[in-house]
Computed example of a mutant assay.
Amino acid sequence: MGTMFLDYGDFNKFSKKLSDTFHMKPINKCNIKSVNIQDILDLLHALPKPAVITKNTQKGASKNYRKYPKKKNTYLDGYWKGEPKKAKAGAFYALHFKPLEGLLYIGSFDGCKVHDESGRVSLVVKDVDIYYIEDYKVDLKSKVVLDQILRKPGPVTYSYFYPGQVDKEESVSLTTNENELKDILYAWRKCRAEQAKFRQRVFKKHGAVCKVTGCAVQGILDAAHLPGRDWQKGHFSAEDGIPLRADLHRALDAGLIKLDAKHRLVFVDSELDMEYSKYIVGSE
């Protein structure tokens, strides 16, 4: 499937289809959508245009991302020194990440507004959607991947993200391809359906009980892929996973715990020793 681009102004339709697909839910009057890290990673990698990214990692600076007066659903992003040279109005998205709050703003880049008194600029961002990443502060492995996209190290003002292997020198087309959009959404729905079936298969084979703790509370149980197995490679059989409590699932993915061939806990990183060492096989 080739790279697909949406016409400028279609982002709200695209985002709504994503929201319907992932069942992203508003969490307050601002219509902030509550999502998890994997949802955001899926969304970013399927964006039909590249993006310019800014980040806010300082307390008290959150207000610098603000609404544009008298312009509906349009925001001004920061007071930056210099314009993003690689970004073209209408041909890029603009992403603003607030890791301290777990908020990600995604909209269409519409150029810059110069502040005469300071010479600094604000990015103008239209058709903004706001996402609250509910597991950002607790996830481990996926958080590292997301940070590689949204939080470039050092005092970087602007970074850039090119989804779908878009070449940085490639001119950006603004033609809408609804068939490719449908293909993307179909692939997501298929993947979500496979994940649901994977959970059923794993629980049927092993029982709906955490292999390590014996926890049977459905709301906090995951069907966790075993090390070396990957849902992106189609590993959805019952043998590819085990039931694990959600926190242990994340610890396993991050390499902070290890299981033996019988799925028993045999190693706990010192960072988690106080919490999980009691579950190590042979512990009293």
Rank of each mutant, 00 (worst) to 15 (best):
P84E: 10
P84I: 06
P84F: 06
K85C: 09
K86C: 03
K88L: 01
K88M: 00
A91F: 02
Y93G: 00
L95C: 02
H96P: 05
H96V: 00
K98D: 01
L100M: 06
E101M: 08
E101V: 03
G102L: 03
L104P: 03
S108V: 12
D110R: 09
D110F: 01
C112E: 01
K113E: 14
V114F: 05
V114A: 06
V114Q: 05
H115I: 13
H115L: 11
D116L: 15
D116I: 13
S118T: 15
V121N: 07
V121G: 04
S122V: 14
L123I: 12
V124A: 00
V125N: 04
D127T: 04
V128I: 10
D129I: 06
D129E: 10
Y131Q: 09
Y131N: 07
E134H: 13
E134P: 07
E134N: 11
D135A: 10
D135C: 12
D135E: 06
Y136G: 03
Y136H: 06
K137R: 11
K137V: 15
K137M: 14
V138N: 12
V138R: 13
D139W: 03
D139G: 10
L140F: 13
L140S: 07
K141H: 15
V145P: 00
D147S: 06
Q148L: 09
Q148E: 14
Q148W: 12
K152C: 13
T157Q: 08
T157Y: 03
T157D: 05
Y158F: 15
S159L: 09
S159G: 15
Y160L: 02
Y160Q: 06
